[in-house]
Amino acid sequence: MSIFSRMADIINSNLNAMLDKAEDPQKMIRLIIQEMEETLVEVRSSSARVIADKKTAERRLERVQAELGDWEAKAKLAISKGREDLARAALAEKQAIAEEITAVEQELSALDDHLAHLNDEISQLQQKLNDAKAKQKAMLMRVKTVSSRLKVKRQVHREALDDAFSKFEHFERRMDHLEGQVDAMDLGRDGKQGLATEIEDLVNDEKVNDELARLKAEMSGKDAGKDGDGKA
């Protein structure tokens, strides 16, 4: 593909349609911008060569125009000297120079048209490039904005989850505390300890009963003595 057909394809292309069809619009826009920049460099290089050709043609035109005047003067000189043959030869050279001038002028006109076309194409391509860069900038801003929003949403969700976990852990600690209070109330009340206490109570009851019987016996003995003394 020549530089000019590629440039025409780029200028006539619809950037939005290309980006819509692309799987990776960011990658596509980078490639488009790279292609445009490379094409611009090539077109400007071609323009520089055309400008150089134009300068060369302009110098050539000046030279042959000067030669045209010289052959005109030579023909007049030959006529004044009675040398019609030389005058004819000088006029023939002048005619050839005139034809060359016409060719150079046509060449310059074509070069001017080519330069004008290149200038127009460069302007359009530059505008396309500016549009592409603007789209790239807008795309990067959208990516940055979306990334920031996603980061914020993730942070908010994370904070919500952290808060929920914190509340759940706080509830668990409260339940542990309540269960601890209940367990503390049952300390010392296990089965073995209760059995030992009951047996000890029985022993104590037996001692009390023995002491009670002793006191009753003593009291009964005293009452009997009093009755005997009274009888005597």
Rank of each mutant, 00 (worst) to 15 (best):
M1Q: 01
I3Q: 00
R6E: 01
I11R: 00
N12Y: 09
A17W: 08
A17Y: 08
M18D: 06
L19K: 02
P25S: 06
I29D: 00
I29Q: 00
I32E: 00
M36I: 02
E37I: 01
V41A: 06
V41E: 01
V41I: 14
V43F: 07
V43Y: 01
V43K: 00
R44L: 09
V50P: 00
K55Y: 10
A57E: 01
R59S: 15
R60S: 14
L61D: 02
A66R: 08
D70V: 15
D70S: 07
W71H: 06
W71R: 05
A75L: 05
S80H: 09
K81P: 00
K81G: 05
G82D: 05
D85M: 09
L86Y: 03
R88G: 04
R88C: 06
A89R: 02
A90Y: 02
L91S: 07
A92L: 09
K94C: 03
I97W: 00
I97Q: 01
A98R: 02
T102C: 15
E105M: 11
Q106A: 15
E107V: 08
L108Q: 05
H114K: 12
N119R: 03
N119K: 05
I122W: 00
S123I: 12
Q124F: 01
Q127D: 07
K128Y: 00
L129M: 04
D131N: 05
A134T: 04
Q136S: 03
A138V: 09
M139T: 04
L140H: 04
M141R: 09
V143I: 15
V143E: 12
K144E: 13
T145W: 14
S148T: 09
V156E: 14
R158F: 15
E159L: 15
E159C: 11
A160G: 07
A160H: 09
D162I: 13
D163H: 10
A164K: 12
F168I: 13
F168S: 14
E169T: 13
H170Y: 12
E172N: 12
R174S: 09
M175N: 07
M175D: 10
M175S: 09
D176G: 04
V182A: 12
L187D: 10
D190S: 06
T197A: 15
T197D: 11
T197K: 10
E200C: 12
D205K: 07
D210P: 00
M219R: 06
A224H: 05
G225W: 08
G225A: 13
G228Y: 08
G228T: 08
D229T: 04
A232G: 10
